[in-house]
Write a protein that binds this DNA or RNA. Sequence first.
DNA 1: AATGAATGAGAATTCATTCAT
DNA 2: TATGAATGAATTCTCATTCAT
Lengths: 195, 195, 195, 195
Amino acid sequence: MSPRSSEQFEQIRHQKQKHIMEVSLRLFGAAGYHSTSISHIAKEAGISKGLLYNYFDSKEALLLQILDKGMNTLFAHYLAIDPRHFNREHMRAFIAKSFAVLQDNPVYWRLYFQVLLQPGVMEMYQDKLARIYQHFITVSHAYFVHMGFKNPSTEILLFGALLDGLSLQYILSPETFPLQTIRDELIERYCSPQT
Amino acid sequence: MSPRSSEQFEQIRHQKQKHIMEVSLRLFGAAGYHSTSISHIAKEAGISKGLLYNYFDSKEALLLQILDKGMNTLFAHYLAIDPRHFNREHMRAFIAKSFAVLQDNPVYWRLYFQVLLQPGVMEMYQDKLARIYQHFITVSHAYFVHMGFKNPSTEILLFGALLDGLSLQYILSPETFPLQTIRDELIERYCSPQT
Amino acid sequence: MSPRSSEQFEQIRHQKQKHIMEVSLRLFGAAGYHSTSISHIAKEAGISKGLLYNYFDSKEALLLQILDKGMNTLFAHYLAIDPRHFNREHMRAFIAKSFAVLQDNPVYWRLYFQVLLQPGVMEMYQDKLARIYQHFITVSHAYFVHMGFKNPSTEILLFGALLDGLSLQYILSPETFPLQTIRDELIERYCSPQT
Amino acid sequence: MSPRSSEQFEQIRHQKQKHIMEVSLRLFGAAGYHSTSISHIAKEAGISKGLLYNYFDSKEALLLQILDKGMNTLFAHYLAIDPRHFNREHMRAFIAKSFAVLQDNPVYWRLYFQVLLQPGVMEMYQDKLARIYQHFITVSHAYFVHMGFKNPSTEILLFGALLDGLSLQYILSPETFPLQTIRDELIERYCSPQT
DNA sequence: AATGAATGAGAATTCATTCAT
DNA sequence: TATGAATGAATTCTCATTCAT
């Protein structure tokens, strides 16, 4: 009888939006962005196509919003690194967190890599990504020096590439990938005192 | 004007087919498979849409043929490894060849990764890929043991991931990536006698 | 706090209805009927879409009600002509009023002409329009005769067309159109004793 | 057996394009641009929706091409006026041609006025229209002076408005409009020596 | 009276593929 | 072999209208 309060509306909006994004992520990740139709998403989400456009301006906007959300997690993760004394404990935490994030939402990271390789979409994030990457370099450089690597810059690049490559392999076969072993090996390798 | 022999026809056919594949690879790599239309390919290749279908059964078949061709290069590369005595020289050659292949045709590898993450296409190659990967493991295992790694299996996995990650980074910014430096560093790291 | 009387409710209702119609007219005039969405109208009017449907049965009904309201002004204008002695003073007043009406609400007249040319809507008013047009002919015929035109019927037709054409031009560029000059010229031409 | 020559293709293209434009003009004129769907046009033209997009980039492009074609007729008509000695014979021809053009394709002129009142489309032609209108003013000014009008500029404006208004009335009821009578009356009025 | 979430029919547009020539 | 006209199914997106609250 009484009309819904704007808080109620807000909540409905928020929840449904989240729901659509989750369904979309799953489908995008599973079949790829282009091979997933709005019809399919709507059907899977149990809503009409029209409603989807009530929440997202376009299919691309939906994708970007999904990416953005995950991106922010990534940002938080990287930017949370204490820049003053990057020590073994920080490195251990960073590696552990990287794998945790990956394991937490492999479908997201599959989508992330898909989009990364699809020209035209990721350009928007290039700057952001470059910034956080630069931040990591700055922060960890002293650490890599302290670890006794001859060429810390190269080492950082290799470290980053290694993380990317491992992520890729995990994404492609999450069931068979020995995540724990690899994580521990990485921690061992990058956090133990070098002889 | 003697009629052309069927060999000549065959060769012309082959040439044109190759041309179409090259054009397609360029466009697929630049804009992505789904965002590249048959019309665009035909126009760019200087032929009609109809003729393209004379050479390839479908857009997907065209993609697969492109992938297949590059795949065979990859296979040749991996399977050429002499299985009997995989020594430093082999490893050095393998790494060098890997980077050479990458540098030779980055657009192909961009497409390769795109497809790798796009489910449904790569399944056809999973077996093949698994086989050559297995071959590399078998062949290099003794080498990694000999190199003194505590856990050679893990080491091989890391090595593979590192190559993947570096490839990815090179593909994403071929101009700024220090290919030579990294290649030499890898050779240094994996082919020098461990202290 | 005594409950508002039903008259007060009625008045509020009437006010809001009028407000919606004004907003709609403005938007219809500015972007055209089809290019103006109910959502846009509701937002611009500061109400919800649902409430709009409380006041008007449909988008078309809203349009018709707007047209109707303006139409009645037109009717009043034409039918107010005293049929008995249509003299120069009447003609002067008629012309002056015509321009005043135009100047008063050019957006309405733009919409009017839009709809006039859009088949299907104006059919409802064809009869009404024909009747008032006929009324004007009847009433002014003697006047045009008296003015000394050889062919009064043709003259009336030309006079009507001239008014239409001038209205059109005014609507299309209200800022640059020399309304006063033209009005005075028309009065001069149609109300002065012909030599 | 033998492939079609490019002339044949050219001809097919040209004829079909023309056909589509004719059908579209008829439907646009009859029901209005927005109320006419591409589906409807395609069905009426006996082709598939897809083919229509082979010939026209978009629905709007189709409209513009239709308008453009008619516009060029108009331009030719106006700009053909010999600027040196605009005499009675020219005026008579001009008026006669105006009515002929109107009678020749009333549906086009209905669409023309529709679009004229629909903001956003005609802006593209504003310049062109302004130029030809200016051309007519320049050319006919001396004539109107010679005709003995006190205020030739105003007279030209009235003349233009009269033509517009008559066109409008003719468009709205082509069957009952006394085209010949009006045309002759106009010629009489604007081409006879003023007493 | 009032809200805006939700619907669904239909709009424009794209594009791989076929086919007559 | 070669062309591009032609198709039709699928896709993204819009919007008037309804309805639960």
